[in-house]
């Protein structure tokens, strides 16, 4: 067993109203960042886990996303490659 570190990005499902992203976008416009088109606010989760190899660790985190970390109705997730921790 080795220790791996995997980062997960969870974002609001595209097409669903994201009021938090819109509020941040509006604030950026107020600050003068007029070129900003869209902002989406999500979660960034770092998981450190024991695993036999990177692939197995990534598979486990994918399962975690499906069961708990992301809501399948409202959110999308992306998993970064596992790196030795």
């Amino acid at each position: 067993m080795s220790k791996f570190r995997i980062a997960v990005h969870i974002t609001p499902r595209k097409g669903l109203l994201d009021p938090q992203g819109k509020a941040v976008s509006d604030a950026l416009h107020t600050l003068g960042f007029k070129a900003v088109k869209n902002v989406h606010v999500g979660r960034y989760i770092i998981i450190e886990t024991d695993s036999y190899d990177a692939i197995t660790a990534e598979e486990a985190v994918t399962e975690m996303c499906g069961k708990l970390l992301a809501n399948p109705v409202t959110e999308d997730f992306e998993i970064e490659s596992a790196v030795p921790a």
Binding site: L16, P19, Q20, N71, V73, T74
Partner: peptide, 17 residues
Amino acid sequence: ACEAGLLPGALMRNSHL
């Protein structure tokens, strides 16, 4: 109940935040 799958759909942040 929605998270548990007893009911369909989900509850999200109020649109006006």
